[in-house]
């Protein structure tokens, strides 16, 4: 057994994460159709995506493991974040 926490707690956690992801997907989709081209909205979107990525990070089980893996994942997310920022903050 890897995780000492009770299974029910893990299930609740996973369900909550799933709900958050679905919510943010719908939210970003709505924003993109309604408020195209606004920089502020793009910024919110970036945050939402980063949050989504963070949650996936959590899903993938790295949250509680070795520093090296978390650093590597953090670096990767930083790379993606810059790509997203580059795509977001240009006026279109």
């Amino acid at each position: 057994m890897h995780h000492p926490s009770p299974v029910t707690h893990d299930i609740q956690h996973a369900t909550m994460v799933w709900g958050l992801l679905v919510g943010m997907t719908l939210c970003s989709f709505y924003l993109s159709t309604q408020l195209a081209g606004l920089r502020l909205m793009s910024a919110i979107l970036t945050l939402a995506i980063l949050k989504a990525a963070w949650i996936a990070f959590d899903y993938m089980g790295l949250r509680r493991t070795q520093l090296g893996w978390r650093l590597a994942m953090g670096l990767w997310l930083a790379m993606v974040a810059s790509a997203i920022a580059l795509s977001c903050f240009l006026p279109g």
């Binding site: 995506i49 989504a52 996936a56 795509s87 279109g92």
Partner: peptide, 11 residues
């Protein structure tokens, strides 16, 4: 999730 945002959503 990232592809969806980057390719379909952000504009």
């Amino acid at each position: 999730v990232i592809l969806f945002a980057l390719v379909y959503v952000i504009h």
